[in-house]
Simulated scan of single mutants.
Amino acid sequence: MSAKDEIHAQIVGALKEAKFPIKTPEELMAALPQGAATKCKAGDVEITAGDAGKVLKASDFPFKDARQVADVIVKRAGL
């Protein structure tokens, strides 16, 4: 599994308990187990939710599911 796929899977896993739709960045951070400090790591690649939140735009919301969140973050983070 590539680092991109591993990070994607970790984001989806971190949001497994989240209630969707998620309408704001604040709701997204609150839905993560450790908030903005939640980390995803694969090999040498590490990203925190706080870092990931910097690549999101207001127009990305609402998110309908965890996979959509992971897709946007992985794409915008350049993984």
Rank of each mutant, 00 (worst) to 15 (best):
A42D: 04
A30R: 14
A66I: 07
G78V: 04
G43F: 08
A42R: 03
G53N: 06
T38Y: 07
K16G: 00
V55N: 07
M29F: 15
V74F: 03
T24M: 06
G78T: 06
F20E: 08
Q68A: 13
K19W: 00
E6V: 13
L15I: 06
A31D: 02
K4C: 12
K39D: 10
K19L: 03
I47M: 15
A31F: 01
F61L: 03
F61M: 01
K64N: 14
D60G: 04
A18D: 08
F63M: 09
I73F: 13
K57H: 11
K41Y: 07
Q10V: 02
V45L: 10
E26Q: 15
A36W: 05
A18M: 10
K39V: 14
V12T: 10
R76L: 10
K57R: 15
C40R: 01
E17K: 14
E26K: 13
R67L: 03
P21Q: 09
K23S: 13
G78R: 07
I73S: 12
G43N: 12
E26P: 00
A49D: 01
G35E: 09
L56F: 15
F63P: 02
D65K: 10
V45Q: 08
A42M: 02
G35K: 09
C40N: 02
R67N: 14
M29Y: 12
E26Y: 03
A42N: 03
A36Y: 03
A18K: 05
Q68K: 11
P62T: 09
V74W: 00
D60F: 06
A58F: 11
S59K: 13
K4F: 09
K57T: 09
A58Y: 12
F63L: 05
L56R: 06
T24F: 06
A58P: 14
Q10P: 03
M29Q: 10
K23L: 02
A31N: 04
F61S: 00
Q68D: 04
E17Y: 04
E6R: 13
V12W: 03
A52K: 00
K19T: 12
R67S: 14
G50V: 11
V55Y: 14
A58H: 12
G35F: 08
L79H: 03
A9H: 12
A9T: 13
C40K: 01
Q10M: 04
A14Q: 07
M1D: 13
A9R: 15
F63Q: 02
E17F: 07
I11K: 02
T24E: 09
A14T: 01
T24P: 05
F63I: 07
L79P: 00
D65Q: 09
I7P: 04
